[in-house]
Design a protein around this nucleic acid. Sequence first.
DNA 1: TTTACTTATGAAAACGCTTACATTAATTGA
DNA 2: TCAATTAATGTAAGCGTTTTCATAAGTAAA
Lengths: 345, 345
Amino acid sequence: MAITIYDISQLAGVSTATVSRVLNGGENVSPATCKKVTDIIEKYGYIPNAYARGMGLHSLKTIGLLCADSSDLYTARAVYLLEQELQANGYESLLCCTGFNQDVRKNYLHLVLSKKVDSIILVGSHFIGTTELENEYIREAADLIPIMLLNASYNHPNVYSTLCDDYASMYEAASSMICSGIPDILYLYNSKSYSGLKKLKGFQNALTDNNIPDSLQNILYYDKSSCDIENITDFIEEMTTGRPRFHGIIAADDVLAVGGIKYAQKEGLRIPEDISIIGYNNSILTACCTPALTSVDNCLEALTHQLIHTLLHVLAGEQTPQKVVFSGRLIERDTTRFSPSPKRI
Amino acid sequence: MAITIYDISQLAGVSTATVSRVLNGGENVSPATCKKVTDIIEKYGYIPNAYARGMGLHSLKTIGLLCADSSDLYTARAVYLLEQELQANGYESLLCCTGFNQDVRKNYLHLVLSKKVDSIILVGSHFIGTTELENEYIREAADLIPIMLLNASYNHPNVYSTLCDDYASMYEAASSMICSGIPDILYLYNSKSYSGLKKLKGFQNALTDNNIPDSLQNILYYDKSSCDIENITDFIEEMTTGRPRFHGIIAADDVLAVGGIKYAQKEGLRIPEDISIIGYNNSILTACCTPALTSVDNCLEALTHQLIHTLLHVLAGEQTPQKVVFSGRLIERDTTRFSPSPKRI
DNA sequence: TTTACTTATGAAAACGCTTACATTAATTGA
DNA sequence: TCAATTAATGTAAGCGTTTTCATAAGTAAA
């Protein structure tokens, strides 16, 4: 059996209370006693049981991190940034990957709640459903602790959102392409999440506002089962054969855009002369492919930083805005040629 | 205050023991009572306190996952696969990202140990030091619970390793390039971890065994501060100007190899006609870049699967091999032209 | 009907820590 | 010198579960 605080107290010839005090910063303990106890702890390699502590303490300074798939490039980066930021502020993080099954989510949320976390951060907008019923579990959770949303928004007490305005960003990206003389654009997306639908809407409205006829609309939903580039390329090829040619591709994620690049190259199209391509997220992939991918940067660092900032305020019981919105920006690289800079009225 | 098992027991008119039994599968509880209690639990949204459970239970079916940087492509994938596999076997996982600071590691290990995990998986070989002293904390941990190493190896009781033979894989990759008539190879690496050094050795021995003169050795260590492709490209450019030209690049990680591709393109070199490039890890990047990157696949799926398999055996108290070694293989794509297939005697 | 055996339930101890409160010893001020 | 204050330590009551053991009620066997 593992060594306990009682064992240490006996070995040091003091009470468990004293050992506990030493463990928690050594206030109201004489230096001599403190040293004696510390030495014993060191010598026997005693590690306090976190669960027993968890019973006594009110806060364990732990934040739950829920995401769908932590291996996704964007999510992985978000998780890492959040984890670092939390750590820097004395908080631990508990990560759970729920996958994309809506049913599994609720169980996971319960699991995290049972760990007495001080708050839960939902990473990505997959957690926000489109119907009120789907979000019931979020409301339940919000009754207990503050819920933080990264890149999603939900209007409810004790739910705080930090997000990039994906609608506006995508609207601007699409407008840039249209204004550069490309009205026939293939739109690729792989997620019908909150932000996924916002982006789609942004794209569609950009078309409408620029009087692009419906016949030129070409919207493809790629089911996010495999993010293999080859699969994406095949998918585009399969879905577009027989359809009228398009001269632009806008993707809701860089991976899809890279699939687009590969497709164009396979078809013998020159980029950006014959076809322009825009990705989204401004991930490392933008620099890996050739030509380098133009992409929308949705300022993940700023988002995660702000989110933790808000969280700390909420936990401190201070007044905090419920929703903070950043705006993304198009980073132009070599898959487009919009210069001179996109028309802004 | 949150609702407790006692509240539920009162509401249902039974004892806490009965509620607990219902919570834990409902053995030895009459169907009627079970239903009654379940309904109350449902109605009040009761969630048992994990810390209180942690006190009673012997095992919490939780495995600690320690990694340096979860946003690294390879690590993120490993973590995801491990998490899924654990989940499928009824285990939870507790993720901690330690960063690269050796000192921080020990604290993290303690933190995870304090959570009464059943085992700890160290993801990647950054945790294995080169001196015995550096590994002291691993030995200490191994006294308490089994320690599992993914892609690293350490000889100690209660420490189990599952890894890819990076030495042999790199030896083969380098040999393939040499045999195809390229003796002047630039070697790029960004980690002096256990496996990082194994790969380096594999490369060096391939040179030696093929009688390549020392003068052609060109080994560059890229300090893993930023994995920005542009930085890598600049780094290569800076470090190689003035040195004799080389006709091959072998990198210990795909990101570095992509940096190599970009460098070659910047220099106006044709790939693979003027320069051949090999990466390592066979990540998604291999398909993103143009030309598609030849890379060593170190069978991450097989590794994670085997590791969890071993872990479950260990936890079940069954006899288990301490070390399982897989072999990687070179996946040839468009940055090399070794065909006909690499010479094997 | 009685006995033996299940089955369902409750009472209470245990888990390892924190902490409010009590106690003792040491220090200060008059 | 003695009361008042402060500092250091101990005692013991929680914290919310699980689980052992005891008990009561129901069922089958004789």
